[in-house]
Design a protein around this nucleic acid. Structure first.
Length: 537
RNA sequence: GCGCCUGUAGCUCAAUGGAUAGAGCAUCUGCCUUCUAAGCAGAGGGCUGCCUGUUCGAGUCAGGCCAGGCGCACCA
């Protein structure tokens, strides 16, 4: 695997620092190289001089010392190093950049890869109960999970996407009773929906499909709803490697077996007519019921079995993407992990906050009970899957999201998804236009790319792997979306200031190479974000 | 009452403990004979909710307040 520019710089610093008696107390983790936010500071910087203040009179002098020693090695990728305010700022050589875009434009994208993530991930997400249609909250989780999985995979991780179907328990029982009531109502028999049952109209539609009164209403309802959920997700462009059924953990006896085992080990005890899991031993505020006094199981009981199953399948990291209504559930699952011998730190929860829908200024209040809610399907029908996905992911997961339906439909600069797509179409169009004119890029002289915008764009391309790395580290998908918007802005600006295809054949060729490289980064990024691109606009 | 999340420009939001806190929208001013103006250039706009710490350095970390959202089941 090819080293990124950042890694190369890090190695250089390590080499200089490692065996120098004047420099002590610096460990590998102290050597941090980061992309800069401003061009005046070069492309990367390190703050290592601040870590060495005891050995040198000032960070400035430490920085100068390191700078001198790095330059002695005469590294080819560095144009210059500047010491400013104690920071070492690295400016990479033109050759490095020109080689980079030349490779990318020619289809060799190895330099766009981040340092490999050699880990096995299991990402569980959506996992909505099959008791009703997917909501926009599920939509945001779905968009997030799919994009995260794609980015992790791109970074080299082994990723499994999983949907856990809660098709057992009280809610499903209520669902079955609600469907039965709807069915009987259709037959003219007065039968009320049970208390706190499901009153949504979708059950009437399903009731129409019920063949006779002797069916298993629970599984009939759940299966029908699950079919809709699958169809919605498919339309949304979200797929799963596995669909795991809660019922199976009961059918195979795994739940009973596991609870018994945990009881023998003293993690489960009986009290007040129920059985309790001692989650308070591992950080939960209180113990939790696993077997109710009526002998039925709580959700936690089967979830223990599910997580045991996850752990046994052998993953380095278990990622659960959940809504904010589940946050109280996290400590007990962490306790489950600990009791089952899995490091709770490797059981990660990503809480995707809620979305508030607006239609312009008007806030759409939603209430499932009153049947006033917008489903994911309705959202897709109104603004389209791509715009929906983009709005869902271009904000941090733990930020509440305001989603304006009017804005998402607008075809103007106000709407970032159109801004991106327009940039993409422009790139494609330029390349096609050049092709019609019979332009060639094969023997382009890239040293002709001297404009400030061209250099900025090139540097931005080189930061792609760093962006991916940052996403992997923080699960912050929005960073990639923002990166893309930044490139789009730079490109639009470049487009207006300079012509790619002109009378100057040599210059045109060089600029076409850059455009090709940009297009590659654009397609790749949008693919990772699971957003499709139009051929024309 | 307890827990989680949030609080940054008029609005919606970025910013991995780094340098002068950045974008977009909105407002104002310019720009189409050109590879798509669904676009571009420029201007104004800030006590990062408040207070105390930790640090060479805090929007970021810790503690305490204030405000908003969401949870606190033998539901899932």
């Amino acid at each position: 695997m090819k080293k990124t520019a950042k890694e190369r710089l890090k190695t250089l610093i390590e080499d200089v620092v490692k065996d120098d008696p004047k420099i002590t107390g610096i460990e590998e983790k102290d050597i941090v190289v980061l992309p800069t936010l401003k061009e005046e500071f070069g492309e990367f910087y390190t703050n290592i001089a601040f870590r060495m203040k005891n050995k040198f009179p000032s960070p400035m002098e430490a920085a100068e010392y390191i700078k001198t020693n790095i330059l002695k090695l005469n590294p080819p990728c560095i144009k210059k190093i500047e010491v400013k305010n104690g920071f070492l700022n690295f400016f990479l050589s033109d050759e490095f950049y020109l080689k980079l875009i030349s490779e990318i434009a020619n289809g060799n994208t190895s330099s766009l890869k981040p340092p490999p993530v050699n880990k096995k991930f299991l990402i569980e997400f959506v996992s909505a109960n099959p008791t009703g249609p997917l909501t926009i909250a599920h939509g945001r989780q779905a968009a997030f999970g799919e994009a995260l999985a794609r980015i992790l995979k791109y970074a080299g991780a082994d990723v499994t996407k999983e949907y856990y179907i809660n098709n057992a328990g009280r809610q499903i029982k209520l669902l079955g009773e609600s469907l039965r009531a709807r069915y009987l109502q259709l037959k003219g028999i007065d039968c009320p929906i049970p208390e706190s049952g499901y009153e949504g109209e979708y059950l009437i539609e399903i009731a129409k499909k019920v063949p006779c009164k002797d069916i298993d209403f629970e599984s009939f309802a759940a299966e029908n709803i699950l079919d809709d959920i699958r169809a919605d997700l498919k339309k949304f462009g979200v797929s799963f490697d596995r669909w795991v059924s809660e019922l199976e953990f009961f059918r195979t006896g795994m739940v009973d077996k596991l609870l018994k085992h945990l009881e023998e080990k003293g993690f489960i005890y009986s009290a007040e007519g129920s059985k309790w899991f001692k989650s308070s031993l591992c950080g939960d505020e209180k113990d939790r019921v696993v077997v109710k006094s009526d002998g039925s199981y709580t959700y936690l009981a089967s979830d223990i079995a599910y997580h045991k199953d996850k752990i046994e399948r052998g993953y380095d990291l278990l990622v659960n993407i959940v809504g904010p209504d589940h946050h109280g559930y996290i400590p007990r699952l962490k306790a489950v992990a600990e009791v089952l011998g899995f490091n709770p730190e490797n059981l990660n929860f990503i809480i995707v906050q809620l979305t508030t829908l607006y239609r312009g200024k008007e806030k759409l209040s939603m209430s499932t009970r009153k049947g006033q809610f917008i489903s994911l399907k309705q959202l897709m029908d109104e603004v389209g899957p791509d715009a929906s996905k983009f709005f869902f992911i271009f904000r941090k997961a733990d930020s509440h999201l305001d989603f304006d339906l009017e804005l998402a439909k607008k075809q103007s600069i106000e709407n970032p998804i159109y801004y991106l797509q327009y940039a993409y179409v422009r790139m494609k169009h330029i390349i096609e236009f050049a092709k019609e004119k019979g332009m060639e890029t094969g023997s382009a002289d890239l040293s002709l790319l001297k404009e400030q915008e061209e250099l900025s764009l090139t540097k931005y391309i080189s930061k792609f792997p760093d962006t991916i790395e940052a996403v992997v580290k923080s699960y912050g998908i929005h960073l990639l979306a923002e990166y893309l918007l930044d490139i789009a802005k730079l490109f639009h600006s470049y487009y207006h200031k300079h012509r790619v295809v002109s009378e100057d054949k040599k210059l045109s060729s060089a600029r076409l190479v850059l455009t090709h490289a940009l297009l590659t980064v654009f397609s790749l990024s949008l693919n990772l974000l699971n957003i499709s691109l139009p051929e024309r606009m």
